[in-house]
Amino acid sequence: MYFDSWSGFLAMAGHGIYVWSAYAVASVVIAYNLAVPLMARRRIFAQIAAQVRREERLVKRGVDVNQVTAGSGDDTGRHSANSGSTQQKHCAERQAEQQAEQQKENLESVKGSAQ
């Protein structure tokens, strides 16, 4: 240990403010680099889980999921990047699903009233 006291360590012979503020900036940058992926991970997982739940619901109602979600990929990891995820595309798909669901419900209600 080079410093003989805790306060001496903090003061750094007058240079404490510079040294410690530099280390504070460093810890902010490190925290940023850790926080961004962790937050993004949670968000993406929630999105995909919601998507999976929606598809399961549709399957239960007897809608052909493959028709609604066009171009569901294979799992070899070699399909084109186009079928990846721009946000807009994702939204459009969600809308298409909701429409399909709605149509299904409408059909059922029409059938019910006809009977």
């Binding site: 991970r41 993406i44 997982f45 998507q51 990929g73 799992d75 990846g84 995820s85």
Partner: peptide, 8 residues
């Protein structure tokens, strides 16, 4: 994960 979200 984000780009492959369509895969099984």
């Amino acid at each position: 994960i984000s780009r492959e979200r369509k895969t099984r």
